[in-house]
């Protein structure tokens, strides 16, 4: 009961894994595959079999998008920078946070009309649809995009 309450009050999630990757698009697949494996591991651990594939794919895709977003958002001369990815959980919710020190961006961006053949701008739309909850914060010069999905 107490934990239940705390969860509702603060969403303090228990971070169990963090990784830091170079801000280079070639690492995006490592990030997304890792996210998929973490989601697989997590949903297995919590004994949730139903819609497991969908759950894992959601993390795979959302992290791919967040990572690419972060890399493309970086100024070109700042290749040295890193993208931080951390995984946290509480009960049946899994959260992944992707952070970087790049310029601020608009997390509410909408995709332009599909019939005008837009080649960019689908990423955040996908993330918002795939996840139960998406939070963007800007603090101390860092962007953090936190994405939560319930495996239940």
């Amino acid at each position: 009961m107490q934990q239940e309450r705390q969860r509702k009050n603060n969403y303090p999630m228990n971070t169990f894994m963090t990784m830091s990757l170079p801000s280079d698009i070639h690492y995006a697949r490592i990030a997304s595959k890792t996210a998929m494996m973490v989601a697989e591991f997590f949903s297995g651990q919590s004994g949730i079999a139903e819609k497991r594939e969908e759950f894992c794919h959601a993390f795979e895709l959302a992290v791919a998008e967040a990572f690419a977003n972060s890399v493309f958002n970086a100024a070109p001369q700042e290749k040295e920078r890193q993208v931080m990815i951390s995984f946290s959980s509480e009960k049946s919710e899994l959260m992944v946070s992707v952070s970087d020190a790049n310029p601020e961006f608009d997390p509410e961006m909408q995709v332009p009309d599909i019939l005008s053949y837009p080649e960019h701008g689908y990423g955040l739309v996908l993330i918002r649809q795939l996840m139960d909850s998406v939070r963007y914060s800007r603090q101390d010069g860092m962007n953090q995009l936190s994405m939560i999905k319930n495996a239940g």
Binding site: K8, P107, D132, S133, V134, R135, Y136
Partner: peptide, 9 residues
């Protein structure tokens, strides 16, 4: 009500 985070749901 318990406040709902903006963007949640």
């Amino acid at each position: 009500s318990f406040p709902v985070e903006a963007g949640r749901h």
